[in-house]
Simulated scan of single mutants.
Amino acid sequence: MIWYALLVLAVGAERLAELRVARRNARWSVAHGAVESGPGHYPAMVALHTGLLAGCLAESWAAGRPFDPALGWTMTAVVVAAQALRWWCIRTLGPRWNTRVLVVPGLPLVSAGPYRLLSHPNYVAVVAEGLALPLVRGAWVTALLFGVLNAALLTVRIRCEGRALLREGAAGPSARPAGADR
């Protein structure tokens, strides 16, 4: 159980690192004319992702399920792959990446890196991590609850991003803000 708590804490530390990058990038975006869209759903997103980490630890401790090596190690590999994909997105978008919906007017959509393959690769990472991290220790209730709530939140988020792109004149066939993919 200790190694799992360390894994969850490491994911939490990674999230804090993301927030530092996002704050720095938000300053850059605002300096280049971006205005935040849809700030109302952001607190729910923060609460959901914090709840995921707490739920992983609470359910795995309370349920006392034994570690299933086949499931646990497979899901650990998915968590690691999700982190790699997330940081590939962050690196590809550079200062345009953010946890908030900030669209810099006049900048084209990014179509390099993982964005040449998927419209929202960071969301793929979020979904994969949100399902896999709890399942490393058999916390299937947390995985299910996060999956359902995250699907609802992503529906709101992706619509918000699409509206922001349209407003800034950057929307195309695969409308997504270049930098608000989280």
Rank of each mutant, 00 (worst) to 15 (best):
M1R: 09
A82E: 03
C56A: 07
L149S: 12
L53V: 05
A54R: 11
S174M: 12
L154R: 09
A175W: 08
R15T: 02
R167Q: 15
R20I: 09
R163F: 11
V35Y: 02
P121M: 04
G40D: 14
A17M: 15
T76S: 00
L145N: 11
L165M: 15
S60A: 11
P66V: 05
A70Y: 08
A17D: 13
V148I: 13
L48C: 08
L135Y: 10
V35F: 04
A84R: 12
A34D: 03
Y42T: 12
L19D: 15
A81N: 06
H32S: 10
V141A: 15
L9K: 05
W73A: 14
V124W: 09
A132T: 10
A17E: 13
F67V: 10
V35W: 01
V104E: 00
A143Y: 06
A132S: 03
A84F: 09
A13T: 08
G113Y: 09
A125Y: 08
M45E: 14
N150H: 13
H120E: 10
A58N: 10
V110W: 13
E18C: 06
A171E: 07
G138A: 04
R137L: 13
G147L: 07
Y4M: 04
R100D: 05
A180T: 01
R86H: 10
L6Q: 11
P66N: 03
A26V: 00
L7F: 03
L19P: 11
R86D: 07
V141I: 15
G55V: 04
W140K: 08
N98P: 03
P177V: 14
R65D: 12
V136I: 03
M75Y: 05
W140R: 06
M1Y: 08
A132D: 06
E14D: 15
A82Y: 07
L149P: 11
R86E: 08
C56K: 05
E59A: 01
E36T: 01
V78E: 04
N150I: 13
D181S: 07
H32C: 03
V136C: 10
A84T: 12
G64H: 03
A112R: 15
G162Y: 13
A58T: 14
L144N: 00
S111G: 14
G147S: 02
V21P: 01
R27W: 04
A151S: 12
A10L: 10
R23A: 13
L166H: 00
T76I: 00
L57K: 01
S37F: 15
D68E: 12
V8E: 02
A5W: 14
L107F: 07
A5S: 14
T155A: 15
V79A: 09
L85D: 05
L117V: 11
S37N: 13
V136Q: 03
P108Y: 11
